[in-house]
Design a protein around this nucleic acid. Structure first.
Ligand SMILES: [Mn+2]
Ligand SMILES: [Mn+2]
Ligand SMILES: [Zn+2]
Ligand SMILES: [Zn+2]
Lengths: 135, 135
DNA sequence: CTACAATTAGTATTGATTATTAATAGTAGG
DNA sequence: CCTACTATTAATAATCAATACTAATTGTAG
Protein backbone atom coordinates (compact mmCIF):
# COMPACT_ATOMS: atom_id res chain seq x y z
CA UNK A 1 0.00 0.00 0.00
CA UNK A 2 3.01 2.34 0.05
CA UNK A 3 3.46 4.63 -2.90
CA UNK A 4 5.33 3.40 -5.87
CA UNK A 5 7.84 5.85 -7.28
CA UNK A 6 7.04 5.95 -10.95
CA UNK A 7 9.13 7.95 -13.37
CA UNK A 8 6.44 10.57 -13.66
CA UNK A 9 5.96 10.90 -9.93
CA UNK A 10 9.67 11.09 -9.29
CA UNK A 11 10.14 13.73 -11.96
CA UNK A 12 7.32 15.90 -10.62
CA UNK A 13 8.67 15.70 -7.09
CA UNK A 14 12.25 16.32 -8.17
CA UNK A 15 11.42 19.41 -10.20
CA UNK A 16 9.27 20.86 -7.43
CA UNK A 17 11.97 20.37 -4.81
CA UNK A 18 14.81 21.42 -7.06
CA UNK A 19 13.22 24.74 -8.03
CA UNK A 20 12.19 25.58 -4.46
CA UNK A 21 9.14 27.48 -5.59
CA UNK A 22 5.44 27.37 -4.92
CA UNK A 23 4.26 26.09 -8.28
CA UNK A 24 0.80 25.63 -9.65
CA UNK A 25 0.06 22.29 -11.31
CA UNK A 26 0.27 23.76 -14.78
CA UNK A 27 3.48 25.66 -14.14
CA UNK A 28 5.03 22.39 -13.06
CA UNK A 29 3.45 20.66 -16.04
CA UNK A 30 5.27 23.05 -18.38
CA UNK A 31 8.58 22.27 -16.70
CA UNK A 32 8.15 18.52 -16.59
CA UNK A 33 6.82 18.37 -20.15
CA UNK A 34 10.22 19.51 -21.41
CA UNK A 35 11.86 16.49 -19.81
CA UNK A 36 9.02 14.07 -20.40
CA UNK A 37 7.05 15.28 -23.40
CA UNK A 38 4.27 12.69 -23.25
CA UNK A 39 3.23 13.37 -19.67
CA UNK A 40 -0.36 14.40 -19.12
CA UNK A 41 -1.56 17.39 -17.11
CA UNK A 42 -3.93 15.08 -15.27
CA UNK A 43 -0.95 13.01 -14.16
CA UNK A 44 0.67 16.11 -12.70
CA UNK A 45 -2.50 17.01 -10.84
CA UNK A 46 -3.00 13.45 -9.60
CA UNK A 47 0.53 13.00 -8.35
CA UNK A 48 0.72 16.37 -6.66
CA UNK A 49 -2.44 15.42 -4.82
CA UNK A 50 -1.02 12.02 -3.87
CA UNK A 51 2.31 13.46 -2.75
CA UNK A 52 0.66 16.08 -0.58
CA UNK A 53 -1.74 13.50 0.83
CA UNK A 54 1.31 11.44 1.80
CA UNK A 55 2.87 14.44 3.53
CA UNK A 56 5.85 14.58 1.17
CA UNK A 57 4.95 18.00 -0.19
CA UNK A 58 2.60 20.75 0.95
CA UNK A 59 -0.51 22.09 -0.69
CA UNK A 60 -1.34 25.78 -0.61
CA UNK A 61 -4.93 26.65 -1.19
CA UNK A 62 -4.59 30.38 -1.34
CA UNK A 63 -7.79 32.36 -1.20
CA UNK A 64 -9.37 32.85 -4.56
CA UNK A 65 -6.38 31.54 -6.47
CA UNK A 66 -5.10 28.47 -8.20
CA UNK A 67 -3.72 25.84 -5.89
CA UNK A 68 0.01 25.82 -5.38
CA UNK A 69 2.27 23.05 -4.18
CA UNK A 70 5.05 23.46 -1.69
CA UNK A 71 8.41 21.68 -1.71
CA UNK A 72 8.31 22.00 2.09
CA UNK A 73 5.56 19.98 3.80
CA UNK A 74 6.09 21.53 7.24
CA UNK A 75 3.50 23.97 8.58
CA UNK A 76 4.49 27.51 7.80
CA UNK A 77 2.96 30.74 6.60
CA UNK A 78 3.18 32.63 3.34
CA UNK A 79 3.18 36.04 1.83
CA UNK A 80 2.01 36.67 -1.67
CA UNK A 81 2.25 39.39 -4.21
CA UNK A 82 -1.03 40.76 -5.51
CA UNK A 83 0.65 41.90 -8.70
CA UNK A 84 2.64 38.92 -9.96
CA UNK A 85 1.13 36.16 -7.78
CA UNK A 86 4.55 35.22 -6.44
CA UNK A 87 4.45 33.30 -3.15
CA UNK A 88 7.18 33.35 -0.51
CA UNK A 89 7.64 31.72 2.84
CA UNK A 90 7.27 33.58 6.10
CA UNK A 91 9.10 32.37 9.14
CA UNK A 92 6.73 33.30 11.89
CA UNK A 93 6.89 31.27 15.07
CA UNK A 94 3.89 28.96 15.25
CA UNK A 95 4.12 27.85 18.85
CA UNK A 96 2.27 30.56 20.77
CA UNK A 97 -0.97 30.46 18.87
CA UNK A 98 -3.26 33.12 20.12
CA UNK A 99 -5.56 32.27 17.25
CA UNK A 100 -6.16 28.73 18.48
CA UNK A 101 -6.77 29.86 22.03
CA UNK A 102 -9.32 32.48 21.04
CA UNK A 103 -11.13 30.17 18.71
CA UNK A 104 -12.01 27.83 21.55
CA UNK A 105 -14.32 30.52 22.88
CA UNK A 106 -16.60 29.93 19.93
CA UNK A 107 -17.02 26.24 20.74
CA UNK A 108 -14.83 25.06 17.89
CA UNK A 109 -12.30 22.25 18.18
CA UNK A 110 -9.38 23.91 16.46
CA UNK A 111 -7.04 21.88 14.32
CA UNK A 112 -4.90 24.60 12.79
CA UNK A 113 -4.81 27.89 11.07
CA UNK A 114 -3.58 29.58 7.96
CA UNK A 115 -1.99 32.99 7.81
CA UNK A 116 -1.65 34.71 4.48
CA UNK A 117 0.09 38.05 4.31
CA UNK A 118 -0.70 40.12 1.26
CA UNK A 119 1.51 42.69 -0.38
CA UNK A 120 3.65 43.70 -3.32
CA UNK A 121 7.02 42.04 -3.83
CA UNK A 122 10.29 43.90 -4.24
CA UNK A 123 10.39 43.16 -7.93
CA UNK A 124 6.95 44.57 -8.62
CA UNK A 125 7.65 47.62 -6.46
CA UNK A 126 10.69 48.38 -8.57
CA UNK A 127 8.73 48.01 -11.77
CA UNK A 128 6.08 50.39 -10.49
CA UNK A 129 8.71 52.96 -9.54
CA UNK A 130 10.25 52.72 -13.00
CA UNK A 131 6.86 53.35 -14.55
CA UNK A 132 6.25 56.44 -12.41
CA UNK A 133 9.55 57.95 -13.53
CA UNK A 134 8.59 57.59 -17.19
CA UNK A 135 5.43 59.62 -16.76
CA UNK B 1 -21.31 57.30 -11.11
CA UNK B 2 -22.56 56.30 -7.65
CA UNK B 3 -24.37 53.01 -7.39
CA UNK B 4 -28.00 52.86 -8.17
CA UNK B 5 -30.06 50.88 -5.71
CA UNK B 6 -32.10 48.61 -7.90
CA UNK B 7 -34.73 46.31 -6.46
CA UNK B 8 -32.51 43.30 -7.02
CA UNK B 9 -29.48 44.93 -5.44
CA UNK B 10 -31.44 46.12 -2.46
CA UNK B 11 -33.02 42.71 -1.91
CA UNK B 12 -29.66 40.90 -2.08
CA UNK B 13 -28.12 43.32 0.40
CA UNK B 14 -31.09 43.22 2.74
CA UNK B 15 -31.22 39.43 2.91
CA UNK B 16 -27.47 39.17 3.49
CA UNK B 17 -27.52 41.70 6.32
CA UNK B 18 -30.73 40.40 7.84
CA UNK B 19 -29.53 36.81 8.10
CA UNK B 20 -26.12 37.76 9.48
CA UNK B 21 -24.40 34.80 7.88
CA UNK B 22 -21.50 34.27 5.53
CA UNK B 23 -23.43 33.16 2.46
CA UNK B 24 -22.23 31.88 -0.86
CA UNK B 25 -23.77 33.45 -3.95
CA UNK B 26 -25.97 30.45 -4.61
CA UNK B 27 -27.16 30.16 -1.02
CA UNK B 28 -28.25 33.78 -1.22
CA UNK B 29 -29.76 33.16 -4.65
CA UNK B 30 -32.00 30.46 -3.16
CA UNK B 31 -33.20 32.88 -0.49
CA UNK B 32 -33.78 35.84 -2.80
CA UNK B 33 -35.47 33.69 -5.43
CA UNK B 34 -38.33 33.04 -3.02
CA UNK B 35 -39.03 36.76 -2.79
CA UNK B 36 -38.13 37.62 -6.37
CA UNK B 37 -38.67 34.51 -8.48
CA UNK B 38 -37.37 35.91 -11.76
CA UNK B 39 -33.97 36.99 -10.47
CA UNK B 40 -30.96 35.49 -12.17
CA UNK B 41 -28.01 33.84 -10.45
CA UNK B 42 -25.71 36.01 -12.53
CA UNK B 43 -27.40 39.08 -11.06
CA UNK B 44 -26.67 37.81 -7.57
CA UNK B 45 -23.03 37.22 -8.42
CA UNK B 46 -22.72 40.58 -10.16
CA UNK B 47 -24.29 42.58 -7.36
CA UNK B 48 -22.38 40.85 -4.60
CA UNK B 49 -19.23 41.74 -6.48
CA UNK B 50 -20.33 45.36 -6.91
CA UNK B 51 -21.40 45.71 -3.28
CA UNK B 52 -18.13 44.34 -1.99
CA UNK B 53 -16.19 46.49 -4.42
CA UNK B 54 -18.03 49.50 -2.98
CA UNK B 55 -17.10 48.45 0.55
CA UNK B 56 -20.69 47.87 1.62
CA UNK B 57 -20.21 44.17 2.25
CA UNK B 58 -17.17 41.94 2.65
CA UNK B 59 -15.91 39.17 0.43
CA UNK B 60 -14.38 36.03 1.89
CA UNK B 61 -12.19 34.07 -0.43
CA UNK B 62 -11.55 31.08 1.75
CA UNK B 63 -8.82 28.76 0.58
CA UNK B 64 -10.04 26.17 -1.86
CA UNK B 65 -13.70 26.95 -1.26
CA UNK B 66 -16.56 28.80 -2.81
CA UNK B 67 -16.52 32.52 -2.18
CA UNK B 68 -18.64 33.79 0.67
CA UNK B 69 -19.98 37.26 1.28
CA UNK B 70 -19.96 39.02 4.61
CA UNK B 71 -22.65 41.32 5.98
CA UNK B 72 -19.82 43.08 7.85
CA UNK B 73 -17.32 44.89 5.60
CA UNK B 74 -14.85 45.66 8.42
CA UNK B 75 -11.56 43.75 8.52
CA UNK B 76 -11.84 40.75 10.78
CA UNK B 77 -10.82 37.12 10.88
CA UNK B 78 -12.77 33.91 10.57
CA UNK B 79 -12.95 30.34 11.71
CA UNK B 80 -14.51 27.67 9.61
CA UNK B 81 -15.73 24.17 10.08
CA UNK B 82 -14.12 21.52 7.92
CA UNK B 83 -17.21 19.33 8.25
CA UNK B 84 -20.18 21.57 7.45
CA UNK B 85 -18.33 24.56 5.91
CA UNK B 86 -19.90 26.91 8.43
CA UNK B 87 -18.02 30.21 8.85
CA UNK B 88 -17.96 32.30 12.02
CA UNK B 89 -16.31 35.53 13.00
CA UNK B 90 -13.26 35.72 15.23
CA UNK B 91 -12.62 38.81 17.24
CA UNK B 92 -8.87 38.93 17.33
CA UNK B 93 -7.26 42.30 17.79
CA UNK B 94 -5.76 43.45 14.52
CA UNK B 95 -3.65 46.36 15.70
CA UNK B 96 -0.34 44.77 16.76
CA UNK B 97 0.42 42.89 13.60
CA UNK B 98 3.55 40.87 13.98
CA UNK B 99 2.79 39.41 10.58
CA UNK B 100 3.16 42.75 8.83
CA UNK B 101 6.38 43.56 10.62
CA UNK B 102 8.02 40.27 9.72
CA UNK B 103 6.90 40.43 6.16
CA UNK B 104 8.89 43.61 5.61
CA UNK B 105 12.05 41.59 6.05
CA UNK B 106 11.31 39.87 2.76
CA UNK B 107 11.15 43.16 0.88
CA UNK B 108 7.38 43.15 0.49
CA UNK B 109 5.20 46.20 0.90
CA UNK B 110 2.50 44.69 3.05
CA UNK B 111 -1.11 45.76 2.61
CA UNK B 112 -2.85 43.31 4.89
CA UNK B 113 -3.27 39.75 5.91
CA UNK B 114 -5.82 37.04 6.25
CA UNK B 115 -6.07 34.66 9.17
CA UNK B 116 -8.21 31.57 8.81
CA UNK B 117 -8.62 29.28 11.76
CA UNK B 118 -9.72 25.77 10.93
CA UNK B 119 -11.68 23.41 13.13
CA UNK B 120 -14.91 21.58 13.82
CA UNK B 121 -17.92 23.51 15.05
CA UNK B 122 -19.88 22.67 18.18
CA UNK B 123 -22.75 21.29 16.15
CA UNK B 124 -20.58 18.90 14.16
CA UNK B 125 -18.74 17.82 17.30
CA UNK B 126 -22.05 16.86 18.88
CA UNK B 127 -23.10 14.92 15.81
CA UNK B 128 -19.82 13.01 15.84
CA UNK B 129 -20.24 12.16 19.50
CA UNK B 130 -23.76 10.88 18.86
CA UNK B 131 -22.44 8.65 16.09
CA UNK B 132 -19.74 7.18 18.33
CA UNK B 133 -22.34 6.20 20.92
CA UNK B 134 -24.36 4.29 18.35
CA UNK B 135 -21.46 2.06 17.43
C1' DC C 1 -40.52 63.12 -24.77
C1' DT C 2 -35.81 61.78 -26.11
C1' DA C 3 -31.30 60.06 -25.85
C1' DC C 4 -28.13 57.86 -23.12
C1' DA C 5 -26.30 54.90 -19.50
C1' DA C 6 -26.93 51.25 -16.24
C1' DT C 7 -28.94 47.04 -15.22
C1' DT C 8 -31.18 42.84 -15.95
C1' DA C 9 -32.50 37.80 -17.30
C1' DG C 10 -31.02 34.26 -19.65
C1' DT C 11 -27.58 31.82 -21.49
C1' DA C 12 -22.91 30.68 -23.15
C1' DT C 13 -18.24 30.40 -22.03
C1' DT C 14 -14.20 29.97 -19.25
C1' DG C 15 -10.83 27.81 -16.47
C1' DA C 16 -9.26 24.96 -12.88
C1' DT C 17 -9.85 20.60 -11.28
C1' DT C 18 -11.60 15.85 -11.11
C1' DA C 19 -13.49 11.62 -13.18
C1' DT C 20 -13.47 8.12 -16.62
C1' DT C 21 -11.53 4.70 -19.50
C1' DA C 22 -8.83 1.76 -22.11
C1' DA C 23 -4.03 0.79 -22.46
C1' DT C 24 0.42 -0.01 -20.18
C1' DA C 25 3.69 -1.25 -16.73
C1' DG C 26 5.21 -3.09 -12.26
C1' DT C 27 5.00 -7.05 -8.99
C1' DA C 28 4.66 -11.41 -6.59
C1' DG C 29 4.18 -16.30 -7.18
C1' DG C 30 4.69 -20.49 -9.44
C1' DC D 1 10.03 -17.08 -18.15
C1' DC D 2 4.51 -17.14 -17.61
C1' DT D 3 0.36 -15.58 -15.22
C1' DA D 4 -2.79 -12.95 -12.63
C1' DC D 5 -3.28 -8.88 -10.35
C1' DT D 6 -2.85 -4.11 -9.15
C1' DA D 7 -1.34 0.52 -9.80
C1' DT D 8 -0.56 3.94 -12.97
C1' DT D 9 -0.81 6.38 -17.09
C1' DA D 10 -2.35 9.34 -21.33
C1' DA D 11 -6.03 11.20 -23.24
C1' DT D 12 -10.20 13.03 -22.91
C1' DA D 13 -14.77 14.06 -20.94
C1' DA D 14 -17.25 16.01 -17.25
C1' DT D 15 -17.89 19.17 -13.44
C1' DC D 16 -18.61 23.38 -11.21
C1' DA D 17 -17.96 28.00 -9.69
C1' DA D 18 -17.54 32.17 -11.71
C1' DT D 19 -17.62 35.40 -15.44
C1' DA D 20 -18.82 37.16 -20.10
C1' DC D 21 -22.07 38.12 -23.47
C1' DT D 22 -26.38 39.87 -25.50
C1' DA D 23 -30.66 41.67 -26.39
C1' DA D 24 -34.31 43.63 -23.74
C1' DT D 25 -35.65 46.70 -19.97
C1' DT D 26 -35.33 50.40 -16.86
C1' DG D 27 -33.69 54.70 -14.77
C1' DT D 28 -32.09 59.41 -15.52
C1' DA D 29 -30.81 63.99 -17.12
C1' DG D 30 -31.83 67.37 -20.17
MN1 LIG E 1 6.12 27.41 1.56
MN1 LIG F 1 -17.34 37.90 8.99
ZN1 LIG G 1 5.28 40.67 -7.50
ZN1 LIG H 1 -19.71 22.17 11.39
Amino acid sequence: MQLRMTNQREMILRELVKNKQHFTADELYDIVKKLMPRISLATVYRNLEILSEAGIIGKLEISGRQKRFDYDPEDHDHIYCVVCQRVDNLNIDRTGDEAKRLALVEGYAVSGYRLEVIGICQNCQNKEKAKEKKQ
